Simulated scan of single mutants.
Amino acid sequence: MPTQPAKNIIEIGRRTFTQESAALIRLSELIDESFEKAVLAMKACSGRVVITGIGKSALIGNKIVATLNSTGTPAVFMHAAEAIHGDLGTVQKLDVVLCISNSGSTEEIRMLIPLIKRGGNVLIGLTGREDSPLGQQSDIRLNTHVEEEACPLNLTPTTSTTAQLVMGDALAIALLELRGFGPEDFAHYHPGGALGKKLYLRVGDISSKNKKPQVEADTPIKKVIVEISENMLGVAAVMDQDQIIGIITDGDVRRMLESHDNIAALRAADIMTAHPQSIDHNTLAVKALELIREKNISQVLVTKNGKYHGVVHIHNLINEGIV
């Protein structure tokens, strides 16, 4: 098989982007009352959204299922070929069915349509052919017609599957906004990984695992150094009974050693920074990261009900995958 000259490869990539993006702009003009009806039917559904398709459309369907589930709309995938060989039981009485097919006329889709209609389920057809069996027999039709594929042979599903994918995203986002789906809801559905931690991990969850270095204002410098070293957080809070009055970092200690030959007479109050930055224990850890970056510091003191609760270090945030 002959290969394309290297000078044409970049142009091929750019042409594909141009063709598909232009098709999406045209597709946006096809959004009409049918789209609104589909969204409202999915929102009103007390069961699940069952998405079905075959071939490349099945792959797109699986992605749309994942997006819906992660944004608060229960969804499940049913392969069209498997549906007519026993998996039709996936569809329950209260479910809405979203069937995806560019042609809307493949054999499996034609066989599946009357079976879904017989069950009384709302059938939403996402198709590029309005005059197809799927287009004609759906209760609600979503038009994803594209003029041509990005494939130069106009055969490989490319632009058409992009259109299906974006239509699925549009449905999911519309449902998300109608449900008032917020960051806390998103965290509920995404508890794992760095994304989940950014949405739910709070500074108190981290500081409670750390030691709690602290000294008094009149603590000798030697003991301050020991407190900072033993707790390995590079910092100690300076306390007056149960109130934070200052902070000493390992940087403060280094600067003190550079400027004083005799440290025996020095106390914590002599080198501390008064009124230090602090953050409430219930604040999201990602906000602590923002504060640390903004102030160009390595750690921040954590408070609970105005009292000293602990320390969060930049290394803690790195280890948790927040950075």
Rank of each mutant, 00 (worst) to 15 (best):
M1K: 14
P2G: 06
T3G: 08
E11W: 06
R15H: 14
F17A: 15
D32V: 06
F35S: 01
K37I: 01
A41L: 09
A41S: 15
C45K: 11
C45D: 02
V49S: 06
I51F: 09
I51W: 07
G53C: 10
G55R: 13
K56R: 14
K63G: 03
A66M: 04
T71I: 00
T71V: 01
P74R: 00
A80E: 01
E82P: 01
I84M: 12
D87W: 12
T90P: 05
T90D: 05
K93D: 12
L98Q: 02
C99R: 04
N102P: 12
G104Q: 05
E107D: 13
P114I: 08
P114K: 12
L115H: 12
I116W: 01
I116H: 00
I116C: 08
I116L: 15
K117C: 13
K117I: 08
I124Q: 07
L126N: 10
S132C: 12
L134R: 02
I140L: 11
L142Y: 03
L142R: 07
N143Y: 03
E147P: 01
E148L: 06
E149C: 08
N154A: 11
P157S: 13
P157V: 02
A163R: 05
V166E: 05
A170M: 09
A170N: 08
I173E: 06
L175P: 00
R179M: 04
F181T: 00
F186S: 07
A194P: 02
G196D: 06
G196Q: 09
L199E: 08
Y200K: 12
S208D: 09
N210S: 05
D218I: 08
K223R: 15
S229N: 13
E230M: 12
A236I: 02
D242Y: 03
I245Y: 10
G246D: 04
D250E: 15
V253S: 03
M256C: 15
E258N: 13
S259W: 03
H260Q: 13
I263E: 07
A269E: 08
S278E: 02
A288M: 03
L291T: 03
L291I: 11
V300N: 06
V300C: 04
L301S: 10
L301H: 09
V302Q: 04
T303D: 00
H313F: 13
I314K: 08
N316S: 09
I322D: 11
